[in-house]
Amino acid sequence: MSPAGIWDAFNDPNLDGWHQLWIHVRLSLEALVLATVIGVTLGVVAAKTGRVTGFVVSAVANLGRTIPTFALLALAVALSTIGEGPTLVGLVALGVPPVLLNAHTGIREVDRGAVEAARGMGFTPLAVLGRVELPMALPLVFTGIRVSAIQIVATAALGASVGANGLGVLILSGLANADDEILLAGAIPTALLALAVGGMLALAERLLTPRGLRLARASRPTKTMRSTT
């Protein structure tokens, strides 16, 4: 086994690592976008509709995180067919909880004084959400998205076991043929991709967090942002 061997395996036209990488990225991106939309929407609704709903939604989301993804994939296959469809469903189900929980917490923890002042100045309820609550919850929501993204990218490899394409195909093939070079030609890019995505989103989080919020966070060291990992 050598790095050159792994590289050759990755470029082998039969395995077609580049194509699988592209499928992997596309599948992950689709799942992340869906998970973000669903997670933020549910999180906002949960935060806005009172204590009981909020509690139920976050309890379910927390429970969802304890179900093994593989079981989820199996369930999705049992309910539909093999291939990309159930893999996407499984990845979205995996990606929603971190985003949802952080959106929920983020909105709930917005300074009540700011919200009351905004209402008192004549912001409509929608403007309070869009211009006060969401911007202030943004850093926490972004942390949720980052956690989801890393999990989705890492887990997308499992899709190969239910017939989806992606870097998992190389991993499975490597296992089946007891060929470590092929195995690593799938595993290493998967790990690198997860790291790169995590780093990129962390950078984006820094760039997108309003300066005023960063300062506010720095001046209140007791109230640090929680990561849900």
């Binding site: 009540r112 004084g113 002042a117």
Partner: peptide
């Protein structure tokens, strides 16, 4: 209500400045 409130100044104990704005 929103129109009314734009014509009434409102100052509260918690101040409630929007932290993400200058």
């Amino acid at each position: 209500p929103a129109d009314l409130r734009r014509e009434i100044g409102y100052v509260i104990q918690q101040v409630g400045l929007l932290p993400h704005l200058t």
